[in-house]
Amino acid sequence: MSRGPVLILLLWAGLAPRASQAELPASSPPVGPGHTEAAAREQTRRLVREAAQLMDRGEVAGAVAKLEQARRLRPDPSLDYNLGIAYAEGGRPAEAAAALERFLAGAAPGAVSQDRLEEARGRLRALAPTLARLSVRLAPGQEGRSASVLVDNRLLGPVPVVGHWLVPGPHEVRVTAPQMRDFIVSVVLTAGEERSVSALLVPRPDAAAALIPPQAPPAPVPVYRRWWFWTAVSGGAVVAAALIGAGAAGGFNRRAPGSDLDPLDVAR
């Protein structure tokens, strides 16, 4: 790829603030603290100029870093185009395809020339057959769960991930969610393949217990509901009844000390 169009485009992005501003989505994220919109735009322009200079010197990695920094500052579609070209120049075709796709999806038709769009489409068409696409979703029944997708230990974002560009070859797909076991699968993708992965999340053994809401400590059982209470009461009642019965029958009577003598019957 010749470096000329890249430089031209970079200059276009950096020196066309109006167009860039027009291409901004209506819901641009706020800039960092202390940055006003104008300051952010000026800093973006500066980063793009520096990236162009780096590209001109053949320092593609440095240029990519500047552009990524600028995009973090202002997610402008023109930056995606430039990033697409820079990624492709730096031997990262999957990221290039993703950036070009973002550019095509986000560029306002009136703000970007038709030639530019066609060029981006052409570049994407050229890259697509050499790449694979991967989609990651959660298994049916778990769609509402929040989980994150990592491919080759690089975070892609929350599920679902649709049509993520990857270079052909083996890749590790990992889906993580709180309290769940990581879903890990290795896939070997071929060029032009579109692979869809459905992740079934299983609770962690230690987390399964944690998922169960902690039960409140059992309320103290009243003493009259304990098994031994009525047993003791019954036993006490039997003992009391026996005592009362024995007392009534004179079982506890003790004869006073002394001698009981024979009676004397007297008469006239």
Binding site: A256, P257, G258, D260, L261, D262, P263, L264, V266
Partner: peptide, 10 residues
């Protein structure tokens, strides 16, 4: 002692 007895009268 004490000695107890009854004197019963007709």
């Amino acid at each position: 002692y004490p000695l107890r007895f009854a004197v019963r009268f007709s």
